[in-house]
Amino acid sequence: MTRGGGTGRIGVVNAQVETVIDLDAIAHNVRVLREHAQGAAVMAVVKADGYNHGAVEVARAALGAGARELGVTTVAEGLALRAAGIDAPILCWLNTVDADYAAAVTADLEIGVSSLAQLRAVERGALTAGRPATVSLKVDTGLNRNGVSATEYPQVLRALRGLVDGDVVRLRAIFSHLAHADEPGHPMLDRQRERFVEAIALAKEYGLEPELTHLANSAATLTRPDLRFDMVRPGISVYGLSPIPELGQFGLKPAMTLQAEVALVKQVSAGEGVSYGHRWIAPRDTTIALIPAGYADGVFRSLSGRFDVWLGGARHRNVGRVCMDQFMVDLGDNAGGVREGDRAVLFGGGTGHPHALDWATTLDTIDYEVVCAPRGRAVRRYVGTGR
């Protein structure tokens, strides 16, 4: 089955560059996370088109494996899931004050509120829609990104109390986000937990009783059982990437493989340069494979000469600069018999394959950014059923 997602086109077959998404791996990872949640509900985060894996397909696989709810950033992302027929609870938590809250209310999306101004915008949306809005309060416990600040929190609670009494708004949850979850022993985690508990208690003083509370992301779900509360909210771990690589994989399976078809195999003589600027000179007579994927497709130019692909049953190093549309790898004597049409794995989860974390380490970033990178001509293809 080949389907276009955020990185492809419907009906494209034999794509030169593709991301292969294993829905069975998604389901496996959700089951692993449910085990760690130990009875707390699981919200699978499918923002940013499912971390570039395809939000709709990932959502279906995650829900089928026992996730109870879904998390996205924007109203538009939530509406796209509803349009695909997904009726599970969906929370969207990062919207501007001029977002289409009326559409969110009509579609029964849960709206994360981070300020008084935003609560008032949601109120207007509910009145326009002619039905109550379902909201969750996002409280800032120390990350200092979005979330109601400590100074504004009492004002938000007073206003929310009035809206709940007027049947304009329903309070569903109070939640927050962690700053140091990938450092399980960091004292800030305990401080944020204390602040979160205090925020919940203050809401109750205003007569506001949340149906749910949630704080834990992927890392906390896997390492800090004291931060579970009623629900956990894993993101990157759903896709099989460890949120704390130094502690291992936690039994997770990477769901994305980025691969490309070999377009050309050719001989290069000793002393000849390869690609722009001849940053690599062949030290011997060798064989070069040309891979038609470049920085327009999400292969970072800054990786030039610093990454391997899996091809012909072995790893081979990129040589020369990565170009907009292509890069080259050195096959040496081509003992694997690589030919045009063979598939090179740039990163994936198979034995021997380079891993997204390899790219991240080389680029001094995180593998979240790596899996979000494939784009342009990269076509998304799904394998497995997710059941």
Rank of each mutant, 00 (worst) to 15 (best):
H36N: 03
P89K: 00
G240K: 13
A62M: 15
A360L: 06
G64T: 12
V274M: 13
S302V: 10
E194Q: 08
A104P: 09
K266P: 02
S136Y: 00
E110N: 01
C92M: 08
D230Q: 03
G305H: 05
E123K: 12
L303G: 05
A133E: 04
E369W: 00
G147E: 07
R120G: 02
R145M: 09
G64Q: 11
D182F: 05
V238D: 06
D330Q: 05
P283G: 12
D285S: 11
L33D: 10
L227P: 02
I200Q: 10
A67P: 05
C92A: 14
L215E: 04
E246P: 02
P187Y: 00
L208A: 02
S275L: 14
V42T: 15
V58G: 14
A289P: 08
P184Y: 03
G336C: 08
L70G: 09
V105G: 04
A219N: 02
A67K: 06
G8N: 05
G66Y: 13
A179C: 01
G235A: 11
V370T: 06
H53K: 09
V370H: 01
T151W: 07
V13A: 13
Q16D: 14
A344G: 08
P210A: 08
D330C: 07
F347G: 09
V232L: 06
E194H: 02
A62D: 15
A129V: 03
Y295W: 13
L63P: 12
E183M: 02
M256R: 07
A55H: 15
Y295S: 10
V97L: 11
E123S: 11
T134G: 00
R191W: 00
G313C: 09
A59T: 14
R170Q: 11
G78R: 00
R377T: 10
G294T: 04
T151A: 15
S176L: 01
T362M: 13
A15S: 12
G66A: 15
G71N: 07
S302W: 12
P234D: 07
W310R: 04
G125E: 12
P225I: 04
H186Q: 01
V329K: 02
R315Q: 13
P89S: 04
G349F: 11
F307A: 03
A255K: 05
A181G: 01
R9W: 07
G64A: 15
F229Q: 06
A37P: 12
S218Q: 02
A44Y: 15
R193S: 03
L264V: 08
I86E: 12
G112N: 01
H353T: 04
A37N: 12
R82F: 13
A121V: 04
D333M: 06
T361A: 12
G125I: 07
Y51F: 15
Y101I: 03
N144R: 10
A27E: 04
N334W: 06
K47I: 01
A48L: 14
L258A: 15
R306S: 11
A61S: 13
V322F: 06
A201S: 09
R170N: 05
H36Q: 09
V122N: 03
A99R: 14
G386R: 05
D98P: 01
R387M: 04
R158T: 08
S115C: 05
A220I: 03
L160P: 08
R172D: 00
N217V: 04
Q118V: 02
L290Y: 13
V72K: 01
Y153L: 12
V262A: 09
G251P: 10
V329Q: 02
R321S: 07
